[in-house]
Design a protein around this nucleic acid. Structure first.
Length: 259
DNA sequence: ATGTCACCAGTTTGGTGA
């Protein structure tokens, strides 16, 4: 079974790539973030023609998450229980479902904007709610994973130049502690192989030739429980999808499972 | 080369977020 997570930065803009990529890779389930559409505008028909069902939690211009599966899509839960909300709004940043033998979440963790910003406090609160929401499944016997854009680089090795990121969001001790808390609930960071260079970066800024210079970060993560981690046979970052015109600024992370 | 992209409002550019 092949699953993946991909921040597509607009499902509308990325649809041709997504369809071609699904066919080329034979991915069974893809966790999508930043759909940037309403649920009504989500291209479920095009995906259905390829044999995929879709579960979508999206409200328009910003955020939006989805699960796209050709191996079943049951018990869909939209939203994060206990979501703290930002400015009084609970944003569409989490969706979960059972896809065949595995239970999966697709999450888009708040960016945080700047340390000290209200959005940064929201980010940390959001992580607290996420941990509470997944703790039961994380400790369970069914393969379970939380995949998505975590907007945190777990270690200094996960940013291209740690010196440039001092005191920036994505690397602060509080954000990394939030990840450690999640792992403490029973989840393991499934670190993918890079297909080129030494670091499995998953995101490269569009600006200033970030990708050609490999100025990347590993912020798209797969956190799996023990039964999930034991089933993993391979994982890699598909950097080919970051190349060329019409690419997202994130590459897909692919995980192969023997389940 | 202060080397981007995408969305929306509401028009052909600016604001916003990442």
């Amino acid at each position: 079974m092949r699953i993946a997570t991909w921040n597509v930065n607009s499902i509308t803009a990325r649809l041709p790539r997504l369809l071609a990529w699904l066919e080329a890779t034979g991915t069974d389930v893809v966790c999508i973030q930043e759909t940037k559409t309403t649920a009504e505008q989500f291209p479920a028909d095009e995906l259905r023609e390829l044999g995929y069902e879709s579960a979508v939690h999206a409200t328009g211009r910003w955020n939006g998450v989805a699960l796209v599966s050709r191996v079943g899509l049951e018990d869909v839960v939209k939203g994060l229980p206990g979501d703290p909300g930002y400015d009084g709004v609970q944003e569409p940043r989490a969706i979960s479902a059972t896809c065949g033998p595995v239970r999966l979440w697709s999450v888009y963790v708040p960016n945080g904007r700047e340390v000290g910003h209200a959005h940064y406090a929201y980010k940390l609160q959001w992580f607290e709610a996420l941990k509470a929401a997944v703790a039961g499944d994380a400790g369970g016997s069914r393969p379970f994973a939380v995949l998505g854009d975590y907007n945190v680089a777990p270690t200094d090795d996960d940013v291209w130049d740690p010196a440039l990121f001092v005191d920036s969001t994505h690397v602060t001790p509080a954000e990394r502690a939030a990840l450690a808390d999640l792992r403490g609930a029973g989840l393991t960071d499934i670190v993918p192989r890079p297909l080129k260079y030494d670091h499995p970066f998953t995101y490269w800024d569009y600006r200033q030739l970030g990708f050609p210079k490999n100025r990347g970060m590993r912020i798209d993560l797969v956190y799996g429980n023990e039964p999930f981690a034991e089933a993993v046979t391979d994982s890699y970052v598909d950097r080919e999808e970051r190349k060329g015109k019409g690419a997202s600024d994130h590459a897909p992370v692919v995980v192969d499972l023997d389940v």
